[in-house]
């Protein structure tokens, strides 16, 4: 419940002209305005421009260093195969599994798992997934609409862990996956989807 006359709020919100405010209520409105004016004074001190620009100008690591980093960092891998070849590969894999690799498990590391990303975007020309697993870089993991029915999907191998991600539709529209395990708010007013990649049990 308001502890001051609601007309003071109306005047301060611009819903009531100040001169329409009864004289006895004007000092309270003026006190708030005076306080706001004091707080609106510029904050003295040196500009932050050089500090911020130094950070954004920081040169990228050398190609050698980047290559070393790339080799030492786990990466998601996407296989893009035509359906006809995928059938042939599946048949070959089945034969191999039946006759040669009965005792072999999936070729995943102990700390790797499989994440499947699926979204329905009927009019999309391209769909990518970006997230904390690829530093939010669009273009690295593409989803495919294999049956041309607007359902885009990609299956990727990722190190086990919890990741935030979004879909990037047609290279410009960032869309959360509302079917995700859960959604979390980020600093930019969006909701990121969350996927938990668990190790594949043998």
């Amino acid at each position: 419940m308001s502890t001051i006359d609601p007309r003071i709020h109306e005047a301060l919100d611009g819903e009531l002209p100040t001169d329409a405010l009864p004289v006895e209520l004007r000092p309270a409105a003026q006190t708030v305005r005076t306080a706001a004016d004091l707080l609106a004074a510029p904050v003295p001190g040196a500009s932050l421009e050089s500090r911020i620009m130094a950070e954004v100008r920081r040169p990228a690591p050398s190609p050698l260093r980047r290559a070393a980093g790339w080799l030492a960092t786990p990466h998601a891998v996407t296989l893009r195969v035509r359906p006809v070849w995928s059938l042939a590969l599946a048949a070959t894999a089945a034969v191999f599994t039946l006759f040669f690799a009965r005792d072999a498990g999936p070729q995943l590391g102990e700390h790797e798992g499989i994440a499947q990303f699926v979204g329905r975007f009927p009019d999309a020309r391209s769909v990518h997934v970006v997230g904390t697993f690829n530093d939010w870089r669009p273009g690295t993991i593409a989803l495919e609409d294999l049956r041309h029915d607007g359902v885009w999907s990609a299956t990727v191998v990722l190190p086990t862990g919890t990741y935030e991600y979004m879909f990037v539709v047609d290279g410009e529209r960032w869309v959360p996956d509302h079917l995700a395990d859960r959604l979390v708010a980020d600093d930019f007013g969006r909701e990121n989807s969350v996927v938990i990649v668990r190790p594949v049990h043998r």
Partner: peptide, 8 residues
């Protein structure tokens, strides 16, 4: 506003 007015 109400809290500030009270203090001020």
């Amino acid at each position: 506003r109400e809290a500030l007015l009270k203090v001020l």
